[in-house]
């Protein structure tokens, strides 16, 4: 069953597993970067001002209902084959969870803390950047890591329109009725998802203040 996956012949060359893995990781990381650059400022701003929350929630829900396959195909039909349609489809997929997480995170900061931030003389930018966002980080990471899992899994579909990534193994295997190759694709995607999540979990540990960890596990030495 796992013969295909462990065949050394499949681990080299321009269509080998390492290349596919890197392509897949590339789609994932660039998608997340673009999506975060759009979704975090939007979610944070709306969360901070408290105005337009229904727009964020509505937009998130509408985008969630959008089938990624259809978006991918539509952009391919309009703009032609290549990586561009893949990024459009995946960024639209990644925006809702990140935006919702950021919005919820900023809204969830204790109003007493925010009141204190203004009371000690922080300007609005300081309140947002020095207090609200650092305190919202756990929920922002929650949304971001959720998006990362979805993007890793869904980037597989990119191969349907001829793009690269681990989806190639699944679709090529399907065309050849090669179950071993399909299974290899599935296993590698799941593995990559776990690794990516671990990576972001590490980043979260490094960047979130120990003061925000649940009481009991917090930095008492």
């Amino acid at each position: 069953m796992f013969g295909w996956l462990f065949d050394p012949a499949h681990w080299s060359g321009t269509t080998g597993i390492p290349v596919r893995l890197l392509e897949h990781l590339g789609y994932t990381l660039l998608t997340l970067l673009i999506a975060a650059l759009i979704a975090i400022p939007l979610g944070a701003f709306v969360g901070h001002t408290g105005k337009g929350g229904f727009v964020i929630v509505g937009l998130s829900n509408a985008l969630r209902a959008l089938p990624t396959t259809a978006v991918l195909i539509l952009v391919v039909l309009w703009a032609g084959l290549g990586d561009f349609p893949v990024y459009v489809a995946l960024v639209l997929l990644a925006i809702p969870p990140i935006m919702a997480g950021t919005y919820a995170g900023v809204r969830a900061v204790d109003p007493v803390t925010v009141d204190a931030a203004r009371g000690v003389g922080m300007r609005e930018s300081g309140v947002l950047l020095q207090v609200e966002i650092p305190n919202a980080l756990p929920l922002i990471y929650g949304g971001f890591r959720g998006a990362a899992l979805q993007v890793v899994a869904t980037a597989t579909i990119a191969a349907y329109t001829g793009a690269g990534g681990l989806g190639r193994l699944v679709f090529d295997g399907l065309a050849l009725q090669d179950f071993g190759q399909m299974l290899a694709g599935a296993v590698l995607v799941a593995l990559l998802a776990v690794l990516v999540d671990l990576g972001f979990a590490g980043l979260q540990r490094l960047t979130v203040s120990p003061g925000l960890r649940p009481v009991g596990t917090g930095g008492k030495r």
Binding site: L149, V152, A153, T154, T156, I157, G167, V170, G173, L174, F179, M182, L183, G185, A186, V189, A190, A193, V194, D197
Partner: peptide
């Protein structure tokens, strides 16, 4: 449950019949 989420739907769909 988290691990189940990481399996791409297309992969699960092609593996299920086997």
């Amino acid at each position: 449950a988290n691990v189940l989420f990481t399996i791409p739907s297309i992969a699960l769909i092609v593996i299920t019949p086997v």
